Each structure stands twice: as structure tokens, then as C-alpha cells.
Computed example of a mutant assay.
Amino acid sequence: MKQQILLAALVSASLFTGCGEPMDEASAEQQPAVEATGQKEQEIVGGAYAYQNQFPYQVRILVDGNTYCGGSLIKPNWVLTAGHCVDGIDPSRMTVVAGDHTITGYESTEQSQTVYGHAKYPYFQYISGAPVHDVAVILLNGSFWLNGAVQTIALPSYPAPQTSMTASGWGWPWGGAYGASDQLKYAGLPVNPVTSCNGWLARNLYAGLELCVGYSNGVSGGCHGDSGGPLAYGGQLFGVVSWGRGVSCDSYTVFADVYSYVSWIQSYTGP
């Protein structure tokens, strides 16, 4: 019965048209001003290459067969990603790959699932060209088989501490590069006071909704293609890669603060 209710909720959320809360005309006009890290932006800048199965909760989201965003497996058949990663995308165009390491090479650990539907947070929108409430859930048509290469990650049970956490993804390796990294990368990044990002990016951050992560000079952080990917600490998922500074990826990376959305996420996935 719970699954039937969840499926009904997906349909009522206009998943199949990619519709969310309507934006005002001013917000809509601002969308192109700042590229979100996944749509045309974000790999891990700096950092290191991951070893096989190091991040078994990391998934790769494809649109029309091409790598588009990252995500995190939170249930065998549910993925958490960024709202802008599903915005306007018909589920029939999407595939989710788990147990992956390199994009071009096939690994025996890989599994793939097509997408039944997705839902953005109801108040997802763009402000000053950057997304706010940038979280979304994806329901798969089947469940991934959990093993050493594919695992779920827990949602946070407490607010994000100001400590070093781990981001991972296949995004661009630096702002001047073009295209995704073939191999999964990761970086340890500090979570800073939210005010640290103010003045460095397109707008000030919203405390409680966004996390200011990384460094002002962008020596290490997210870049194009990393969007929707995880920020993890202690076996819990604290952040979703959201946006940064344009094409250059040369400053802080903004993550959606997952703790603020746990109740909404679980209204779809269950506890």
C-alpha cells in the first residue's frame, strides 16, 4: 500500500513533465546567468582518482545515453540528486548506472536501471541565476542489487558539522577543461560557515538550505558534471552538489543541505 501511495505522489508531482513550483518571469530569465554544476558544469577539481568500489553509493545519471549528473543511492530503487538535474527532463530519457568506475570502460560491477519518475522539491527555483531548494528524488523502474560495489548511503541524522567531508564525481577536472573525467574522482573539502561564500559567488547563500564547501580560490571542489553528486561524512549524505562560479569553477562549491530535506525525501522513499 505504501508503494502505491508513493507512486501516486510521483504522478501528482508532475514527474513526467518535469514540472515543479512555477517560477516568476524574473527568476526564469535569470536561469542562464550561473551554470549549475551538473547541467553544463561540475567534475572534481583537484582531489584524487578513486579506487574501484570506493564510493559504492555514487551513481551516474545519463540523459539520452550521455553522462549528465551524479547522484547517491539512498534506497535500492531510489536516488537523490539535484533538482536542476531532472528539471525539464522526461524520465524516459534517463538511465542510472551504479557500481561504475570509468565511463568509457565497462566493469563487471556495473548495473543500470531506467527511470520511472522523478520529483523536485516543490519550491525549487532559480534566484540570481542559481538554484535554490536544489534537491530531487528519482524512482527507478527496478532495484539495484546491493553488493560490495553497490550500496546505499544513509540520510543525515544531525545537521552538517563544519568539518572535512568527501565529494565525488565524474565532472570536469578543472574549469578550463572540457568534458567529464573518465575516472571517478574525489576530494576532501571543508564545510565552512555559510557566510564564507557571500561575496564570492552570484548571490549570498541561504543558511539551512545550502552549504558553503571548499575554498575561496577553488583549488579543490566541484566543477561541471559533478552536479547532484554526494558530499559524505561518517557514512551519511550531508550534501548534494548544486552550483558554483560559472565556467571557471575557481571558488567555493555550493551544496544543497540534505538535512533540511530529510522529511520531504522520506515522504517519497519511506524511512
Rank of each mutant, 00 (worst) to 15 (best):
M1H: 13
Q3W: 05
L6I: 15
L7T: 12
L10S: 07
V11W: 15
V11S: 03
V11N: 03
V11H: 12
A13L: 07
F16G: 09
G20F: 01
G20L: 00
E21D: 12
P22W: 13
M23Y: 06
E25K: 00
A28N: 15
Q31H: 11
Q31Y: 14
T37Y: 03
T37C: 13
G38R: 08
K40I: 15
E41C: 04
E43S: 14
E43R: 15
I44M: 09
I44S: 02
G46R: 03
Q52G: 08
N53R: 14
Q54N: 06
Y57E: 13
R60S: 13
G70V: 06
W78L: 00
V79I: 13
T81N: 05
H84G: 01
C85S: 10
V86W: 08
V86H: 08
G88L: 09
G88N: 13
D90W: 11
V96M: 02
H101M: 11
T102R: 14
S108G: 05
Q113C: 07
G117T: 06
H118Q: 12
H118C: 05
F124H: 07
Q125L: 09
S128T: 11
A130V: 09
V132W: 09
V132G: 02
H133K: 01
V137F: 01
I138L: 05
G142F: 10
F144G: 01
L146V: 10
N147V: 12
V150M: 09
Q151F: 04
I153L: 09
P156D: 03
Y158M: 10
P159N: 06
A160G: 09
Q162N: 10
Q162F: 15
T166G: 00
G169E: 04
W172H: 08
G175H: 07
A177P: 00
Y178W: 15
G179R: 13
A180I: 06
L184Q: 08
L184E: 01
P193Q: 12
S196H: 05
L201T: 10
A202Q: 09
R203D: 14
N204D: 15
L205Y: 13
Y206K: 03
G208M: 12
E210K: 01
V213C: 04
G218P: 12
G221C: 05
D226C: 01
D226N: 05
D226F: 00
G229L: 00
V241G: 05
S242Q: 08
W243Q: 01
G244T: 05
G244P: 00
C249Y: 03
C249G: 09
V254G: 00
A256R: 10
W264P: 04
Y268V: 02
T269N: 05
G270L: 11
G270P: 14
P271H: 15
